[in-house]
């Protein structure tokens, strides 16, 4: 059997989660590798969760939030963005490739963009292969 990665996707309730729903209503198809965790805002995703997911066996993590400037909570996604550099550094410190994290901004009416992001991330993670054994105990 080919390698089927598991990807955790944090979707904000207002835009990306709704886009994922609309992808369904529109019967768009995408790889079944992601598991969506609904959060109220992308700014609710604690950096710890990204490390935790990768440590517990996820092969990739996606954060999906509203377009910049359209956050339901004014500037939550800007705060998410501000954390990214730090998160990438953290990932690298722990020996994870930074490509294992992807961030996408999309609106609730862009199911195609959601599908594209998920499909690309699945491809990307498949290329990277499983997280290497030694870091799992880190």
């Amino acid at each position: 059997m080919s390698y089927e990665p598991k990807i955790i996707a944090f979707c904000c309730n207002w835009c990306s989660y709704a886009a994922a729903d609309l992808a369904g209503s529109s019967r768009l198809q995408y790889p079944p590798n992601i598991r969506i965790i609904r959060v109220m805002c992308s700014g609710m995703v604690h950096p710890e969760f990204i490390l935790e997911a990768l440590n517990k066996g996820a092969d990739g993590v996606m954060i999906m939030g509203c377009h910049l400037g359209e956050c339901h909570y004014l500037d939550g996604n800007h705060i998410t963005m501000a954390r990214l550099d730090m998160i990438v550094e953290l990932l690298e410190d722990f020996g994870f490739e930074s490509e294992r994290l992807s961030v996408t901004w999309l609106s609730s009416t862009e199911p195609d963009k959601f599908v594209k992001a998920v499909t690309e991330m699945t491809e990307r993670v498949k290329k990277l292969g499983p997280v290497q054994g030694e870091v799992q105990t880190a």
């Binding site: 729903d21 995408y30 079944p32």
Partner: peptide
């Protein structure tokens, strides 16, 4: 959410959709 985010988007892969539904 095993409809909008599962059965509808993995219509051609019932086995994977079932696994995902259990996970969800």
């Amino acid at each position: 959410n095993i409809r909008n985010q599962d059965s509808w988007v993995h219509a051609s892969d019932p086995a994977a959709a079932t696994t995902k539904a259990k996970d969800l």
